[in-house]
Amino acid sequence: MSNHTDTEFERKAREAFDASVDAVDAHTSSQLNRARQVALAALDRRDHSMLRAWLPAGALAAAAAMVLLMWQSPNVSVTPDDVAAGAAIAELPASDEDLDLVTEDPEFYAWSAQQASLVTNGTG
């Protein structure tokens, strides 16, 4: 609220504005209500999309770290097949569309993770 004493002019101006707000018609009120519901629905989507935004980056970083480990480790002999497998693993989901694939085809990504562990253990 205002922290000074309102003049007569300010009081009248506010009253006129308040009356015009009260006079907003039913159709507009209904549309505003709907707009508010859309905005509130965005709250849920925001939580979900934040997770979706960070997942690809995390998956990509993990895959890159794994490929780097494969190259650096002296106990593991890296064959061209291993490199190809690493490259496939590096193609982890990097977009929202790819993430939909993760949920639709979890077996592929389970297999992909298994391949990754075989390569790092030097058994693949």
Partner: peptide, 11 residues
């Protein structure tokens, strides 16, 4: 909050 301000914001 949005219900309080929506009509005023519209005007």
């Amino acid at each position: 909050f949005l219900a309080e301000v929506e009509k005023r914001a519209f005007r």
